Simulated scan of single mutants.
Amino acid sequence: MKHISASHESFAEIAAAAARLLTGLEKLTDADVSAPSRLPGWTKGHVLSHLARQAPALERLLEWARTGVENPQYADRAARDAEIEAGACRPAAELVADIAETAARFQRTIESLPGPAWRATIQPFTGEVCTPERILVIRLRELEVHHTDLDIGYGFSDIPQPALGIVLDDVTGYLAPADETPHFVLRDENGEVIHRFGTGGPTVSGPRAAVLAWLTGRSAGEGLTSTAPLPVLPGWI
């Protein structure tokens, strides 16, 4: 799975993504919170509650890395889902304040994590064994993809290229080893290969933002072309 190094540059990418999200939330109303998001079954409040609670969950993994004492991201899926549900109906101002506070605390945690801790071994909720550098990708991915899920005027084409590249690499890295992923070649609009899934199969081409929207299940393939019918992708996390 994709990692990025623990550096001022990667920390800045996460801070910038959080700032873009908070700017987009400035005019959020209580009515907006209860409106549907782009995720089936989730209101905008559910997405916001998830983003707020995800930061301290990832901090538990960073504390595991710092101390060597196992500290799971969540007790189990039921606990995670209950936590999201419990916060989803809060007023807009409370949700936004929660996101701002937890994002700032997460930023302080990554920027102060000691060097040896970045080389420790931890295990996120998804089951992979990794170092804390993986947490940087997870946080950036969640901020950017869920920002688009809120349907507040921010789309995949609005994600800056450095962040877009990191998230796209991560998603292709997730799909590549999956048994259900069909064989095909993925290229950008300039013909550059983004990823080869298996051997052979059709060639799917398009802008990287449109590619990411499709790979994450956020679009049916709008903006893409294919030399055969678009492959059917397995579900993404």
Rank of each mutant, 00 (worst) to 15 (best):
M1Y: 12
M1Q: 07
I4M: 09
S5C: 07
A6Y: 06
S7T: 12
S7G: 05
E13F: 11
A15V: 10
A15D: 15
A16E: 08
A17T: 05
A18Q: 10
G24Y: 05
E26L: 06
K27F: 02
A31M: 02
A31Y: 02
V33E: 06
S34F: 01
R38T: 03
W42P: 02
G45W: 02
H46Q: 05
H46T: 04
H46L: 07
V47A: 10
L51I: 03
A52S: 06
A52G: 09
A52E: 03
Q54M: 08
P56F: 04
E59K: 05
L62Q: 11
E63K: 11
W64S: 04
A65P: 14
T67K: 09
T67Y: 11
V69Y: 03
E70S: 14
N71M: 07
P72N: 04
Q73R: 09
Q73I: 05
Y74I: 07
Y74F: 13
A75Q: 08
D76H: 04
R77Y: 04
A78V: 10
A79D: 11
A92I: 14
A93D: 12
A97G: 14
A100H: 10
A103Q: 08
A104N: 13
A104G: 14
R105T: 14
Q107W: 05
R108W: 08
R108A: 14
T109R: 15
E111I: 06
S112C: 11
L113S: 13
P114M: 15
G115A: 15
G115I: 12
R119A: 12
A120F: 12
A120K: 09
A120N: 07
T121V: 11
I122P: 11
P124Y: 11
P124L: 08
P124T: 10
E128I: 14
C130W: 13
C130M: 15
T131P: 14
T131M: 14
P132F: 15
E133C: 14
L136W: 08
I138T: 11
E144H: 01
E144D: 07
E144F: 02
H146L: 13
H146R: 09
T148C: 02
L150P: 00
D151P: 01
I152K: 05
Y154W: 12
F156R: 01
F156Y: 08
D158Y: 03
P160E: 06
P162V: 03
A163K: 03
G165Q: 11
I166M: 03
I166Q: 06
V167R: 01
L168Q: 00
D169A: 15
D170T: 07
D170R: 12
V171P: 12
T172Q: 05
Y174P: 01
A176R: 01
A176D: 08
P177M: 06
D179P: 14
H183C: 13
H183S: 15
H183W: 10
R187Q: 08
R187Y: 00
D188Y: 01
V193A: 07
V193D: 09
V193T: 15
V193S: 10
I194V: 15
H195F: 10
F197Q: 02
F197H: 06
G201F: 05
G201S: 10
V204T: 02
P207N: 11
P207Y: 01
A209Y: 04
A209G: 11
A210T: 00
V211N: 03
L212T: 00
W214L: 05
G217D: 04
A220R: 09
T227W: 10
A228W: 09
V232D: 15
L233M: 08
L233D: 10
I237T: 15
I237G: 07
